[in-house]
Write a protein that binds this DNA or RNA. Structure first.
Length: 423
DNA sequence: TGTCCACTGGAAGGGAGGGCTT
DNA sequence: AAGCCCTCCCTTCCAGTGGACA
C-alpha cells in the first residue's frame, strides 16, 4: 500500500489538509444550536427570566412566562442558557429539577406534546407512550402520575408555541398551565416561546391569565449589536487575521435588513467561511459574504421546492407555465385548469379546487408564490397569483430533481394543446 | 341601487395509515 | 382479531363577499 504513495502526493495532501484547516478554528461556534458562554445585548432579558424562574430554587412554584420575539433574536438560546444554569445550580443544591425542551414546530399536536413530556421521563420510568394510539386524556393522566411520583420542579419549555396553538388550539396550554392544581408533590412552570408577536390574540382569556403571568420581549438586534455578536463568536470560530475587516459589518448589515436575525448573520459568516475554504483562499472577503447570501437564499428555496408533495409541485409548475406564456397574474380557476392538464399528463387524479386553493395559500406562506385575494367586481372574487421568484431560477432547481425534470418535458408534448386552451 | 360573478374559507366528516389494548 | 384512538389529507357542502356593471 505505502509504496503507492509518492512523496509528492503526500505533500499535496498535507497541504490541502493544512489549507483546509487554516480558516476555521472551530466552526461549531457559528451554528445556532451552539450556546455561547456569554450573550451580548440580552442582559435585561436574562435577568427577567431569572427573576421569574429562580423562585423554583427556593422551593416555590415558578411563574409561567411567555417569551416573544422574531426569529434570530436570541429567545431560544437565552432560555436554554438560563435553564441550563438553573438546572446546574439545582443539582448542586441537591434539588430535583427537570428541564424539558420541546420544539413545537415538530411536535405540533396536543397528543404529541403530552407524549413527548411523558417520554422525557423514560430514563426514570422505563416507560414510553407510543407516538399514536392512546386517548389523549390518558396520556395526560399518565403525565400527572409520573410528575407527581416525587417532589420535584419541572420547567417545560415550549418553543415555537404559536405554531402549536395555530394548528391544534390552546387546550394543551390550558391543561399545562393548570397542571399544578392536580399535583401534590411536584411543581411545574411553563415557558412559552413565540415568534409571533400577536400570539396572545389566539389564546383564550383563561389560558392567558395563567400562562401570560409574565412576559418577556426580545427586540430585534440592530446592525451594531449583530456585529458585536459576530465578533465574539468569530474570535472562537476563525483563526486570527482570516477575516477581512469588512466581513463582519457586511454580515451584520445584511442580517439587520432581515429583521435583525442573528441566526442569519451567523449563517452568512459560516457559509462565507466555507466558500473561502473551498476556494483555498487565505482570507474571507466581502465577496465571499455576497456569495454566501446568494447561496443561502437559493438553498432555502430549493430545499422547500424539492420536498414539496407532488400536487404542490404540479400547482407551482402550472403557475410557471402560465408565467412563461405571459399569463400572470392568474386567478385560481386558470391555475386549476392548467394543473388539471398536468395531472392528466402524469396520470394522476386531480385534487378538488377547494384543496388546490389551500395548497396555493401554503405556497404563498412559504414565499414561493404570491397569492392575494382581489375582487374583480362583476368578474368575481378570486386570488391573484404570481411567482415570487423568476421562473428561470425555478428551472435551475428542477434540474436537481429527476422527477421534476419530467415536468420540463411536459411543455414540449403539450404546448400546442395549451396554446389552444389559452386562446 | 341591486345583481351577480368566481371564487373564498369555514365546517364537517370520511377514510387510509399508523398504533394501541384486550 | 376486534375494537379503539390519533393524525393527515382530502372531499363535500355552503354561506359569504368586494366591487364592476346594468
Amino acid at each position: 500500500m505505502e509504496e503507492k504513495w509518492s512523496s509528492l502526493d503526500l505533500e499535496e495532501m498535507i497541504n490541502k489538509y493544512v489549507s483546509k484547516t487554516r480558516i476555521f478554528r472551530n466552526r461549531e461556534v457559528l451554528r445556532h444550536s451552539y450556546t455561547p458562554p456569554y450573550l451580548p445585548h440580552r442582559e435585561v432579558q436574562i435577568e427577567e427570566l431569572v427573576r421569574v424562574l429562580a423562585p423554583a430554587l427556593r422551593g416555590e412554584t415558578p411563574s409561567n412566562v411567555l417569551v416573544y420575539g422574531k426569529t434570530g433574536t436570541g429567545k431560544t438560546v437565552t432560555v436554554k442558557f438560563v435553564t441550563d444554569e438553573l438546572k446546574r445550580i439545582a443539582d448542586k443544591k441537591g434539588l430535583p429539577m427537570n428541564v424539558i425542551y420541546i420544539n413545537c414546530e415538530l411536535v405540533d399536536t396536543e397528543y404529541r406534546v403530552l407524549a413527548r413530556l411523558v417520554n422525557s421521563f423514560y430514563y426514570e420510568t422505563g416507560f414510553r407512550v407510543p407516538m399514536v394510539g392512546w386517548p389523549t386524556d390518558e396520556v395526560y393522566s399518565k403525565l400527572v402520575e409520573i410528575l407527581d411520583s416525587k417532589r420535584r420542579f419541572v420547567i417545560i419549555v415550549l418553543d415555537e408555541v404559536d405554531r402549536l396553538v395555530k394548528k391544534s388550539g390552546d387546550t394543551i396550554l390550558y391543561s399545562l398551565s393548570r397542571i399544578n392544581y392536580e399535583l401534590q408533590h411536584a411543581r411545574v412552570g411553563v415557558v412559552g416561546i413565540s415568534n409571533d408577536l400577536r400570539f396572545k390574540d389566539y389564546l383564550d382569556a383563561r389560558v392567558l391569565s395563567s400562562l401570560g403571568e409574565e412576559e418577556i420581549v426580545f427586540p430585534p438586534y440592530d446592525a451594531n449589536q449583530l456585529a458585536d455578536i459576530l465578533t465574539g463568536r468569530a474570535k472562537e470560530a476563525f483563526y486570527e487575521g482570516v477575516l477581512e475587516p469588512g466581513v463582519i459589518p457586511l454580515c451584520a448589515a445584511l442580517a439587520a435588513r432581515e429583521h435583525g436575525d442573528a441566526r442569519r448573520a451567523l449563517d452568512l459568516l459560516r457559509v462565507a467561511g466555507e466558500i473561502a475554504e473551498k476556494e483555498h483562499s487565505a482570507k474571507v472577503t466581502e465577496r465571499h459574504v455576497r456569495l454566501a447570501q446568494e447561496r443561502i437564499e437559493f438553498d432555502t428555496i430549493a430545499e422547500a421546492i424539492l420536498t414539496l408533495p407532488i400536487h404542490s409541485k404540479l400547482i407551482l409548475h402550472a403557475v410557471v407555465i402560465l408565467d412563461e406564456h405571459d399569463r400572470l397574474p392568474a386567478n385560481t380557476g386558470e391555475v386549476y385548469a392548467v394543473y388539471k392538464d398536468l395531472c392528466d399528463y402524469f396520470s394522476l387524479d386531480p385534487l378538488t379546487q377547494r384543496r388546490v386553493s389551500d395548497l396555493i395559500n401554503e405556497l404563498d406562506t412559504m414565499g414561493i408564490l404570491n397569492a392575494r385575494v382581489v375582487s374583480k367586481g362583476r368578474y368575481g372574487r378570486t386570488k391573484e397569483i404570481r411567482l415570487s421568484l423568476p421562473s428561470s431560477k425555478l428551472r435551475r432547481i428542477y434540474m436537481a430533481d429527476k422527477k421534476l425534470r419530467e415536468l420540463l418535458a411536459f411543455e414540449l408534448s403539450k404546448e400546442r394543446r395549451l396554446i389552444d386552451w389559452m386562446s
